[in-house]
Design a protein around this nucleic acid. Sequence first.
DNA 1: TTGCTTATATAGAAATAATCGATAGATCTG
DNA 2: CAGATCTATCGATTATTTCTATATAAGCAA
Lengths: 301, 301
Amino acid sequence: MDTRKIEAFTKVFEHNSFSKAGRALFLSQPTISAHVAALEEELGVQLFDRIGRTVVPTKAGEILYHHAKNIFESSELAISEIRKLENRVVGKLDIGASTIPANYLLPKAMAEFYMKYPEVTLDLSIGDTEEIVTMVKGNFLMLGLVGGLVTSQGLIFLPVLKDSLVLVMAHDLYQKYAYLSLHDLMLTVPWVVREEGSGTRQAAGTWLNKVGLSFSGLREAIIVRNAGVLLECVRLGMGAAITSYVTVRSEIKDGSLVSVDIGHNSIERQFYIVYNKKRTLLPAAQKLIKHLQHNLTPIKI
Amino acid sequence: MDTRKIEAFTKVFEHNSFSKAGRALFLSQPTISAHVAALEEELGVQLFDRIGRTVVPTKAGEILYHHAKNIFESSELAISEIRKLENRVVGKLDIGASTIPANYLLPKAMAEFYMKYPEVTLDLSIGDTEEIVTMVKGNFLMLGLVGGLVTSQGLIFLPVLKDSLVLVMAHDLYQKYAYLSLHDLMLTVPWVVREEGSGTRQAAGTWLNKVGLSFSGLREAIIVRNAGVLLECVRLGMGAAITSYVTVRSEIKDGSLVSVDIGHNSIERQFYIVYNKKRTLLPAAQKLIKHLQHNLTPIKI
DNA sequence: TTGCTTATATAGAAATAATCGATAGATCTG
DNA sequence: CAGATCTATCGATTATTTCTATATAAGCAA
């Protein structure tokens, strides 16, 4: 059931003639004969009755013709859809983001992007930085927006925005330790921390190193896998935490949480767009990267 | 967009691997690479991103895969439908019949055939013998049932049944010429005759020759192209006619028409099944021929 | 890091298939 | 019946497919 053969067959069917089919396909008549004969051999049935110099399709020929039309239609559809894809910003885009970007950065940016390119569907997965990077690396996601850098060959990390982290505690807890210096406070209080693999933890760890500490030197009361759960634990007074300012903005303003003054060593971390260097980026993906680079608005403080 | 190439592409897509695709198709890995490369060249897009040793389809690859599935499905559908056709009595059968058989022979036979083979659809065209034979010859009809023999190479005429013709006149008209001998009557009365090409006319002509006459020696008052119209003309007294007994049976019985006694030279004609010697006969057509040969019941007199 | 293994890509040779021109055989046309 | 036109067949030529061998790259384990 080779394409060339089916093409020859189809033309014979349409012209009721082997030689006309040959002329139509710029092939010799013997070639057409051979192709049709091969098909007949392969299917074990006659496709045309050769009645003198006229050619009449058999029932089997009619059936084959009907399906041959479908075959060519499928090919043409495939070609035209691929052609369309090349220049248009369309399709489903599997993207991923770690907790903070997914909750505080992406919603607005995605809404704007959707207004600009309504033919693109974004499918957003949420996980911690490490999980998202692994999924990008494994080609399950086309793009990721994460809060930390992960050394991994073949991945490109585009810095897009900076974020401020704060050290927060429940008001009551803070009262208990208020007499201590910042350094002693941190060594004494129980901590609510994010899991390994979290961008927030990574950034917090970097800052701790800068002030001469590390996670291993702290009392980790509880490890949580999510910024929301972390907030709840801090609010309940289980311990102190380092987290993105935006996640605790309203609690700081209403006084239920205290943002501990950490002096001049501000805690900052970078967000990155991450994608696989060798994967072909659709126009849609390219546009999304540009959109995020230009339209991710810093979180208001 | 060759079948082999699309097959190779499809298997790569399904295995996410060129070498596994090769093993699945009993081809070498370089062959698969070449096929996919050729497709990519032809379409002008990349179908897979080769990321190290892992293979990830691009959007274009996904689109092509979807349509490739349709292509293979069409091929398989065509093959299975053709296979089914080989042994089953199914399908549409274009048949034709001249006036008398279509009206007086076929209805009962077709009803019986339908009971036996409900998957066969009969599409009956009606014309005079010559028209039907021409359509069979031109492959517009698979089978014909006609009331006369037409010399034509490549056609097979199977005799199936004999029919009796009668010479009829309106009662009033007959009274007018009753004093004449049969021979003189025929030379004197106006005639209602069928057109050239009619099996009835052909049979009538043969009989006329036998009794030493011919159509050219008769007064042809009107030529009609249909047995029903002929009957109407005779009934209105326009002239005598030679026609199939069945078409005038009730009129003879109720006395409105007179069947003229033609002595011992009875007018008979043969019905034939006619088909193209070289056309492939479907099982359905073969069964229909057999059915007609065995189940066409003579018209009761 | 350094091999070891497993992928895909590439090049050249061998096998297979497609195609053609010439021609035979059949059939329609005038 | 002769000439034109059609399909089938044959042998030769040209393209394509496919292979083996090898290069190149990437993951994996020590």
